[in-house]
Measured scan of single mutants.
Amino acid sequence: EPLWIRPDAPSRCTWQLGRPASESPHHHTAPAKSPKILPDILKKIGDTPMVRINKIGKKFGLKCELLAKCEFFNAGGSVKDRISLRMIEDAERDGTLKPGDTIIEPTSGNTGIGLALAAAVRGYRCIIVMPEKMSSEKVDVLRALGAEIVRTPTNARFDSPESHVGVAWRLKNEIPNSHILDQYRNASNPLAHYDTTADEILQQCDGKLDMLVASVGTGGTITGIARKLKEKCPGCRIIGVDPEGSILAEPEELNQTEQTTYEVEGIGYDFIPTVLDRTVVDKWFKSNDEEAFTFARMLIAQEGLLCGGSAGSTVAVAVKAAQELQEGQRCVVILPDSVRNYMTKFLSDRWMLQKGFLKEEDLTEKKPWWWHLRVQELGLSAPLTVLPTITCGHTIEILREKGFDQAPVVDEAGVILGMVTLGNMLSSLLAGKVQPSDQVGKVIYKQFKQIRLTDTLGRLSHILEMDHFALVVHEQIQYHSTGKSSQRQMVFGVVTAIDLLNFVAAQERDQK
């Protein structure tokens, strides 16, 4: 057995438009009618409502009807409940999964919650491996369901041993009777949507819809739904939504950006999952974080739909894509998950301010006199920076000697690579993860907040409520011999709460 199987392995699926269902090699399930009293909570997966979006479509000038398939009504709160249950049931049916076995899954959280929910009911041990950027709410729900959680670096490539995929496979090879159901490759993922989600949409719309818009992560949702719609409703256009920084969209030119990270969760990847059939997507749109969270908040405030950030991405694209539809036509959007997962993220004004998705003037509360002053007023001194090749031991000596707790790590040209902190280095040394002679590049981390000289002290204040420091950066445009230009970030300084307090105190003292 291989040590790991690539999540982007070539698909062996034989589905073709027009091929009889009787030739399918898979076990198919028909939607079942729910009894009045459910035998367990797993029976509350599927049969989610279709809700008309009344205000947002009109606000953006849509002539067509805009409908939302509300997947956050599933038992675990997301569309991923469907595939989690289906993968477990299919693994039980073919004898792969037996009582007492362990389920391991690399996930952005929602599939993990679905699997942990099913594992709690069915009696399996469950280990979820997820990147650090995923919300604390997801972690809390997983723990409450009895799952064990392993976190991995957000910026690790999918084929790196440190990625959530790599760590999951390492655990599988170490733990007896453990299984990775593997949402990236498992046919049960798109089949769950082909058999149930798509049929529900067709039934709820009486077979009449002209466009379907869905955000894409593993691709199982859009693949399964689109294949069924292509068979039953061939005139329906399928629109895929991919965040900026991901590479799922086609044509490839759409993916060209210097951005590699994004805040919206559960969609987009740096590889093409095996289950994603991009041939059934008629057109791709890219979405960005700001519009995703703005539209998610709009869905909550104006439509009462308590959905997550990827739902915002989907609707932001839908109001663009559906401009081509006329009166009497219908566009369906998939709202994948609930706001429950993001209470401390985009639902929080403070978080939105820190990330730059909300401006101070958007909030009406009274601010102190210094709130709208610029960061450049602080008069920061030149920063202490270190090269990635310097040793951890030497870096600790320098920081202690100069009285700093942290320093930016830059390359020879001064471009920011990340940050090192005294606390992080000492804990890594004590844990045996690094040696004093190791290069400081081994303990770089990139989960820090950046701020510009033109940003306000109010925004800085919000950042420092949650973080010990902020890195002050400025952009530099560099022209190359080819005539092309590129933008790079340079370090201007490091600012802490002490710097802000000293500035405010000094100004008030001078005024007296």
Rank of each mutant, 00 (worst) to 15 (best):
Y269S: 06
G379Y: 14
L457A: 02
E397T: 15
A382S: 12
E303M: 02
Q487P: 07
Q489C: 14
R509I: 07
G432P: 06
Q326S: 14
D411P: 12
S287E: 13
I390D: 04
A431C: 07
L422V: 14
L453D: 02
G483V: 12
A321G: 12
S338L: 07
A506C: 10
S310I: 13
V332L: 14
G441T: 02
W369P: 14
P368I: 13
Y479K: 15
L363Y: 02
R459H: 14
G441M: 10
I444A: 12
I390W: 10
V281S: 07
C392Y: 13
G308A: 06
A321R: 09
M343S: 02
D337H: 02
L426I: 10
L501T: 02
I396Y: 09
N424V: 12
K484L: 13
T385Y: 02
G483T: 12
V264S: 02
I477G: 02
Q478W: 11
M343F: 07
F492D: 10
F285S: 10
V491T: 02
N341P: 05
A249M: 11
L426W: 07
R452L: 14
V264F: 02
K402R: 13
P436W: 09
K442D: 13
A470I: 02
T261H: 15
T274H: 02
T421R: 14
Y479L: 13
T314V: 14
E303V: 02
V473S: 15
K366Y: 15
A407R: 02
G393T: 15
M490W: 10
E412C: 12
G441I: 10
Q489T: 15
Y269R: 02
A382F: 14
V434I: 14
S485P: 12
A296W: 02
Q447D: 13
L305N: 02
F492L: 11
I416L: 12
F295L: 10
E327Y: 02
I398A: 10
T482A: 11
F469V: 09
E252T: 13
S348Y: 04
V332Y: 02
P368H: 06
D270A: 02
I398N: 11
Q447T: 10
D455C: 14
S348M: 09
V241R: 02
I398H: 02
T395E: 02
T257R: 08
F271W: 06
Y342I: 06
S287M: 09
L426G: 11
D277W: 07
S427H: 09
S437C: 11
R330G: 02
T456P: 15
G418Y: 08
T261L: 06
V319I: 10
F357Y: 09
Q478S: 13
Q323L: 13
L276D: 02
G458D: 11
P388Y: 10
V420S: 13
R400Y: 14
D499K: 10
Y342S: 06
T385V: 04
K359L: 09
L426Q: 07
V491D: 02
R297L: 07
P383V: 07
A470L: 12
S481V: 15
G483C: 13
Q302K: 02
D438C: 09
A470Y: 02
T395I: 11
A316C: 02
L373T: 02
G441P: 02
V280P: 09
P368S: 11
E324W: 08
G308S: 02
V315D: 02
T261R: 11
K484F: 13
Q447F: 09
F469D: 07
A318T: 11
G493C: 14
G441V: 07
L429C: 11
L276T: 12
I451S: 02
T260N: 06
S437W: 15
I272S: 07
K446T: 15
M466A: 10
Q511L: 10
L429N: 14
D467E: 13
E258W: 10
D282H: 02
L430W: 09
T391K: 04
S461G: 14
R488W: 14
I463L: 11
L399R: 02
N288R: 13
K512T: 10
Q376F: 08
L305Y: 12
L417F: 12
G312P: 13
K402S: 14
E324R: 02
I498T: 15
I239D: 02
F295W: 12
L399A: 14
F469G: 12
L471I: 14
S313A: 14
S461A: 04
V332F: 02
I267G: 02
I247K: 10
F295C: 10
F448L: 11
M425W: 09
P251F: 02
P368T: 06
